[in-house]
């Protein structure tokens, strides 16, 4: 049923630290790796070795250059983006078949691929570009929050987090219950001033982003360390003779 659940018990989601992300794209690759082998149809690539490859990905890292207001050094921000598992998910209610749904128990937005007709309307309704149609299968693919990892008792406990979170070498991705104000992720959001993407769309995203710290400003004076005087040491003895002889040649 594509009506949104009235009450969501837990709001599982991600917190992405834009201050820490180094833009290595490891989360993109681990996401593609895990999700191609597990939940649903594999994430296909078309013309993978040709001139114009196109593929399905559930997570993408944009990189932006920001010129701060009032001058100062420009800043590079790496910006990972995947499904935000919105509370008011517009992608769910537009689905004509009931394939797209939001789970009441943990708030994860999923696609039942056996019911998806591939009309693409959910991708139109998503402001964030979180859904991509798989061109081989003709069904809509999206982040599952690694629903097949987080409850998977066959995995070590440390691995029961989304693949992107597990793989991030910078610790820029955090996973937890954003509906519980005492959870580590909620504390992090409160502490660091986590924010929503495109709040004016009214989607109420569960995933939050933590802002990058502003770059240090120069407070006058010399920008570089003082230049040290180069020490001149004249050679003596044999080395002095060698030096002179070599000069003459």
């Amino acid at each position: 049923m594509t009506a949104l659940p009235e009450r969501i018990e837990r709001k599982l989601g991600l917190v992405i630290d834009l201050d820490t992300c180094v833009g290595c794209h490891a989360c993109v690759i681990s996401c593609k790796g895990w999700n191609t082998e597990n939940y649903g149809a594999p994430l296909s690539d078309m013309d993978a070795y040709g001139a114009d490859p196109v593929g399905t990905f559930l997570n993408r890292v944009h990189s932006y250059e920001i010129q701060p207001e009032g001058g100062g050094c420009a800043q590079t921000v790496h910006f990972p983006k995947s499904c935000l598992h919105c509370e008011d998910a517009p992608c769910v209610t537009v689905c004509p078949t009931g394939a797209s749904y939001k789970r009441a128990e943990d708030g994860i937005v999923l696609v039942n691929e056996d019911a998806c007709i591939g009309c693409g309307l959910c991708a139109w309704a998503c402001p964030y570009g979180a859904r991509e149609m798989d061109q081989a299968e003709g069904v809509m693919k999206k982040c599952t929050l690694c629903v097949d990892r987080i409850y998977n008792e066959n995995l070590e406990e440390v691995d029961r987090v989304p693949a992107c979170v597990r793989t991030c070498p910078a610790g820029a991705r955090h996973f937890g219950d954003l509906g519980d104000p005492d959870s580590a992720v909620s504390q992090l959001v409160a502490e660091r001033g986590g924010f929503d993407l495109m709040p004016e769309q009214g989607t109420k995203p569960v995933n939050k982003y933590l802002p990058p710290r502003p770059k240090d400003r120069l407070t006058g004076g010399v920008a570089t360390a003082p230049v040290l005087p180069t020490e001149r040491r004249d050679a003596t003895g044999f080395l002095a003779w060698l030096d002179r002889t070599l000069e003459k040649i």
């Binding site: 834009l18 490859p53 250059e65 920001i66 701060p68 590079t76 139109w124």
Partner: peptide, 27 residues
């Protein structure tokens, strides 16, 4: 700014993918 939640003048420094994708083909 509203899309990224970032302040200041923003330009895309690097696209997330070198080729095209479903989003660019559709939107």
């Amino acid at each position: 700014n509203s899309a990224t939640g970032l302040h200041g003048q923003i330009r895309m420094f690097e696209s997330p993918h070198s080729g095209t994708n479903y989003l660019l083909q559709e939107f």
